[in-house]
Design a protein around this nucleic acid. Structure first.
Lengths: 177, 177
DNA sequence: GCATATTAGCTTCCATGGAAGACAATATAT
DNA sequence: ATATATTGTCTTCCATGGAAGCTAATATGC
């Protein structure tokens, strides 16, 4: 006889779906099974990742900026506008992030030579060393979280996310909202 | 001869990975392929979903609160603490959301009879009608986004997300951070 | 060459949420 | 019964980001 224990307790999303099916039987709430869980998972992962950023005294936004500078390669410099574009925030938000990082001594800010409007943000030596350590730790953390799936599952998931993302970002012109 | 056009241009995440491979060849950045895209996709989907909330004059948080009340079923009432738990925010944040919804005439707030500390938040008639229309539209929107995948892809994705989510939320005790 | 437009970064103001504590009501222990 | 602990909500303060506008510098059109 097969064990009937642990009947896979409904997760949060499934419970919400059950509520809706009772209250609005006229609506197909199947999409929530995917979109709701994707958001929930993203939130959970963010929470786990922020634990590591915090160990280095960084917020997620600050970590992102330091990564963008480090990824740029020697001499680890970028304009604020570039950083804003890379990290998907407005230039106003970027100004404030740079303010904080500058105050912490992790980056410097100077005027660009060829365009006096522009600034150049550069990693300092301590900033470079901090992000190198933090990023190493960060990727170890992501690896740990990803290892909750098997390699086959991981590969399948990456493919599905890549496909969906490309279609969301580049909608076929025929789709209407 | 097979067409060699459109060599699947690197997406944002792939470009970031390429940068890291050059700068930090010692680190395995494969997990970003999944985690980075998952976050990117979550952000994109949120943006699309917020367009619909906005049509009804609602922010995402306000939409969530109205949904939680509507899902509760007749008479569409819940305590602020319950709402906070359901929508994953602190009670302080919930107080402010309820303030806004109350000001908009979509919910009412009264003292609980059996516990004078407690409040009861209830959907008003206009609130009920608004969320019924908004939710219908919202699910149509989620359906549109999900239909960018095939049914087989959708099913596979939901399974993978459910599996991963359950493991992230209920880590095996042997896993260490 | 000068007037106008554009650009880059910054500033200000607003929206939202978290953290911590205040406050009142209720539960618990003796 | 009363002192203490807990609970539920709200308040205050702070952190962060967006939107819009400001300023200085550069580009463009005539």
């Amino acid at each position: 006889m097969v064990s009937m224990d642990d009947p896979q307790p409904l997760d949060r999303v499934a419970r919400i779906q059950a509520d809706w099916r009772r209250e609005r039987p006229d609506i197909d709430i199947a999409p929530q099974g995917v979109i709701g869980r994707l958001h929930r998972l993203a939130d959970q992962l963010t929470e786990e990742l922020c634990l590591v950023y915090g160990r280095y005294g960084l917020s997620e936004g600050e970590f992102d900026v330091l990564c963008a500078l480090r990824r740029a390669g020697e001499p680890y410099e970028r304009a604020p506008g570039e950083l804003a574009a890379h990290t998907m925030v407005t230039t106003g938000a970027m100004t404030k992030r740079i303010d904080r990082l500058e105050r912490a001594g992790l980056v410097t800010r100077r005027r660009s030579d060829d365009d006096q409007r522009g600034r150049i943000v550069a990693l300092t030596r301590p900033g470079r060393e901090l992000i190198d350590r933090a990023f190493t730790d960060h990727m170890r953390n992501e690896r740990r979280l990803l290892d909750l799936l098997t390699p086959a599952e991981t590969q399948a998931l990456e493919g599905l996310l890549t496909t969906w993302l490309s279609r969301v970002e580049n909608p076929r012109p025929s789709d209407s909202k």
